[in-house]
Design a protein around this nucleic acid. Structure first.
Lengths: 214, 214
DNA sequence: TACAAAAAATGACTGCGGTCAACTTTTCAC
DNA sequence: GTGAAAAGTTGACCGCAGTCATTTTTTGTA
């Protein structure tokens, strides 16, 4: 029979991931060694490296599962009909709370996600893409409702807010934003700024045709 | 005499930094070990750790010097009278070119700067602050010229652009932006978006008082 | 079933970042 | 000048991420 090997590999990978969920979850990232993971998964240390290239890749896989769960949860609660600003603030704040639940986890995750190495680009880009795609329906609806300009590439608009979210996270990690309340206010303020624009509102004569929304 | 000890310490610190400039510069960050740095500086390995807390802190100190030089250079060329958009694109692109001159250097630097650990927050915040302060005159002038809304907290406006710059860097490291030309276009597009706003231009009746600029 | 080739697992090993108890140098009160 | 306390230096040492030559398991073929 042919599928035996594949099946075993699947099981082993699952065992590693389960071990990661347990050990990363209880002890933390830095405090969990590859050898401990291997032991918990019932395999040798070297074997881990035929399933993952680096420790941080295991961590990303771990995060992937957790975030998938979070996103389906958020996705169910969120309403594409609500005003975009509020929706975005809600979603990003939920993410923020999740990501920074454990300070070290969040740092490792963000470093790897935002500035990946050659070994983790693929995985981190996938996660990033999924995160971005998640927003599309909300932006499409907002655009239909006239809350967003119609001449925008949706992905750039999403990227714009995403970028402000990253800045906020940076503010958290650099100690500029200490309380969750600060984070919320900072994020909302930046989002409003993004919507209304940093330049003065042009006088009517300067307005582009696109601005004549119904 | 009292100043002998202080003087010696200054020299040692300088020796470490010089060693860092040489070795990081020629071999690279990951390829340079603390022991090599110590040897090059003519001191023992342990001594390094009474001057810096981590390897990445040495790296930040190294970057600090380099960037200071870069910023004075940019500062001399830049003109506060030019349109804000062009100035910003120029400055950020110069930074981009510098930071990503060496892919690994840039990654380590950015990870530490944007998502610092407890051990490097202080230093990275200082660098961040200096970077932000650098922009103030340009924004003040732009505001006077009416290129920026007057009701904006300058720091938030700067942060806004800074955030888009970080996103661009992330795009570079995740392989979304491959050529420098892509980076330039992406950055300019985001900056324009930030200035004009993501929401449709409000109809005149909805305009806020602040929009009646002379 | 027998067996060789391919795939997978393994843990001893390497090199590194960071620590620390022992040691050396500097300071300063007398 | 003396001696003891404070400050500074050091490299052996620790634990860990990641490697790789060797061993074990699986597969396909006859």
């Amino acid at each position: 029979m042919g599928g035996v090997r594949e099946e075993k590999k699947r099981q082993t990978k699952k065992a590693i991931l389960d071990a990661a969920i347990t050990l990363f979850g209880t002890r933390g990232y830095a405090e969990t060694s590859i050898e401990q993971l291997a032991k918990a998964a019932g395999i040798g240390k070297g074997t881990i490296y035929s399933y993952f290239q680096t420790k941080s890749e295991i961590f990303l896989a771990f995060c992937e599962e957790e975030l998938e769960f979070l996103h389906t949860e958020i996705g169910q609660q969120a309403d594409t009909k609500k005003p975009l600003l509020e929706t975005l603030v809600d979603i990003f704040m939920a993410n923020f709370q999740y990501v920074t639940r454990n300070r070290d986890f969040g740092r490792v995750y963000l470093r790897e996600l935002i500035f990946p190495t050659e070994l983790t680009v693929k995985r981190s880009k996938e996660m990033d893409d999924r995160f971005i795609m998640f927003f599309i329906p909300f932006f499409e609806e907002a655009q239909k409702r006239g809350e967003l300009r119609r001449d925008l590439e949706l992905l750039f608009a999403i990227g714009h807010f995403y970028s402000l979210y990253i800045l906020t996270l940076s503010g958290w990690y650099s100690g500029r934003l200490l309380e969750e309340e600060d984070v919320l206010m900072f994020l909302r303020m930046l989002f409003k700024q993004a919507l209304s624009g940093l330049a003065p509102v042009p006088s009517p004569s300067q307005q582009l045709p696109i601005s004549h929304e119904n």
